[in-house]
Design a protein around this nucleic acid. Structure first.
Length: 502
DNA sequence: AAAAAAC
């Protein structure tokens, strides 16, 4: 009913919005834009995918048409929890600000200071920042906050999760009290409410319905899997191959190391795949995301850095290689598909030790998730010790002892084709398993033997690190079971990490 | 059981 033209936005903004193909504002936009244009504070309770970003970008553009930026004195400041989100907001300013001549500066970590500094010096109308880099510039005396008229705090609840609140408070103290503050959060726990009370003056409060915790257009399935990485990877590959309507997919892992490992495994198995996690260098992160958005890469293996906020339209599938530990993350992850009423599919590999997290998910979304090919009780048990007297062992709950006590006896029902990666036994205390199969060349599990080393190296995904990796692994092409493509051995050239496969 | 963010 409402039209963008009715909200009080300037002609320049309206024409850019029209050019972008939009006529009808989303509820958060219709609600937030008019009061924002009247310089009111806003408390917006909205998730990504609700049009939240445009709800502050559009009025800011209109308001910024009056006045000019002075050197080192930005006029507006937007705080974002992750670099990608910040970059995405910057893209929005480019898109809707194309009729303006505004200076937009993106201040995020992982990239050089100099260019950012030049933009600051020239005078920025809009600063889009992650907190750390902003404070870094400030401490170097490159920046005066006293001219900031509008402060945007985006994804406040996530900032809280990430421990950014002290930084945010510090930054807010540097900005004049007379500012206008636009505050957004997906949820409103007590701490966030307290923060909002302190930062905002008589705000216009807007709440848009939480996107149905799990969109009804998304098919959700649990898939029973064994806990061993190589078995999970085989299960995942089968699953991916079984999808005939797969256009592109995000595959989530809980840990950065697993993102790196799974990426390499899938790459070796000939999938068109990229990786994204926070320890990758920023250029790779950006390039990877761009390549995924452009369709140059079909699969993106990612940490939860990609779970929220990132605007990647049209993902047909989401795979959870790991069950997220926090159930809300599940909602965010599978929210990457089935957007804007389209259909999507999500699959979550569940191992025995994940049961309690899977239960928590079902509780949170208040629905049962169907199992794809039978639940865990129907999955052949690869190794169950007869010595295990603990009654709870059977009902699927975690039993720590079992992991180190399993004997080779219980291995008869093991799927023979998954037995290749047993060199894990070389490094695990479970010595008696080794004789069950002939020794294999190697698998990535061998890397666990150098875990400390890899941890210290940290940036497991960067090309530089590939070069640094244990030289002994050079000849170990058998990354895991199954045929491997002829290719690059263990050294994947950096450009492959960036552009993916043809 | 983690990830994210400043150098």
């Amino acid at each position: 009913m409402t039209n963008f033209a009715d909200l009080g936005l300037s002609q320049k903004v309206l024409s850019a919005v029209t050019d972008a193909g939009y006529t009808t504002p989303t509820p958060i936009q219709a609600g937030a834009i008019p009061p924002a244009l009247q310089r009111r504070d806003i408390l917006g309770i909205a998730q990504t995918g609700t049009g939240k970003t445009a709800s502050f970008v559009l009025p800011m553009l209109t308001l910024l048409e009056k006045g000019r930026a002075r050197a080192r004195m930005p006029r507006t400041l937007i705080l974002e929890p992750t670099r990608e989100l910040a970059a995405q907001v910057a893209e929005n300013f480019d898109k809707y600000g194309k009729n303006h001549k505004l200076n937009i500066a993106l201040l995020i970590g992982g990239v050089s200071f100099d260019e950012q500094d030049r933009k600051l010096e020239r005078g920025a109308d809009v600063l889009i920042c992650t907190p750390g880099r902003l404070l870094d510039h400030f401490e170097r005396g490159k920046l005066l906050m006293s001219g900031v008229e509008i402060l945007v705090i985006d994804e406040a609840d996530r900032m809280l999760d990430m421990g950014f609140i002290p930084d945010i408070e510090r930054i807010a103290k540097l900005i004049p009290f007379t500012r206008q503050t636009l505050f957004f959060s997906a949820t409103m726990p007590a701490e966030i409410q307290k923060l909002a009370d302190r930062f905002l003056q008589n705000p216009e409060r807007l709440e848009v319905a939480r996107r149905a915790s799990t969109a009804t257009t998304v098919t959700q399935r649990f898939v029973a899997a064994h806990a061993k990485d190589y078995e999970k990877r085989a299960t995942l590959r089968d699953l991916i191959r079984a999808q005939d309507d797969l256009k592109n997919a995000i595959i989530f892992c809980n840990r950065k190391k697993d993102v790196a490992d799974l990426f390499r495994s899938l790459d070796r198995h000939g999938f068109s795949v990229g990786a994204l996690h926070g320890d990758m260098d920023q250029r790779s992160r950006m390039a990877m995301l761009a390549n995924f958005k452009d369709g140059n890469i079909k699969l993106l293996v990612a940490s939860d850095v990609a779970a929220r906020g990132l605007d990647i339209p049209d993902v047909s599938h989401v795979f959870n290689f790991d069950v997220p530990i926090h159930a809300e993350d599940y909602v965010h992850r599978i929210g990457r598909t089935g957007r804007a009423g389209r259909s999507g599919a999500s699959f979550t590999l569940v191992t025995k030790r994940d049961i309690k997290f899977a239960d928590a998910i079902e509780k949170l979304i208040d629905q049962k998730v169907e199992w794809l090919n039978g639940d865990l009780s129907e999955l052949p048990e690869p190794m169950e010790s007869h010595d295990n007297r603990r009654e709870r062992g059977r009902d699927g709950r975690r039993d720590r002892k079992k992991d180190v006590e399993r004997s080779s006896k219980g291995r008869s029902d093991r799927r023979p084709d998954t037995a290749t990666a047993d060199s894990a036994a070389e490094i695990e205390p479970v010595v008696e398993r080794a004789e069950a199969v002939k020794p294999q060349r190697n698998t990535d599990t061998s890397k666990q033997g150098h875990a400390g080393r890899n941890d210290r190296l940290g940036r497991a995904q960067s090309a530089a690190n590939d070069d640094n990796r244990d030289r002994r692994s050079r000849h170990r092409r058998d990354y895991d079971d199954g045929p491997t493509p002829i290719g690059f051995g263990d050294e994947i050239p950096a450009f492959m990490l960036i552009v993916g496969k043809a």
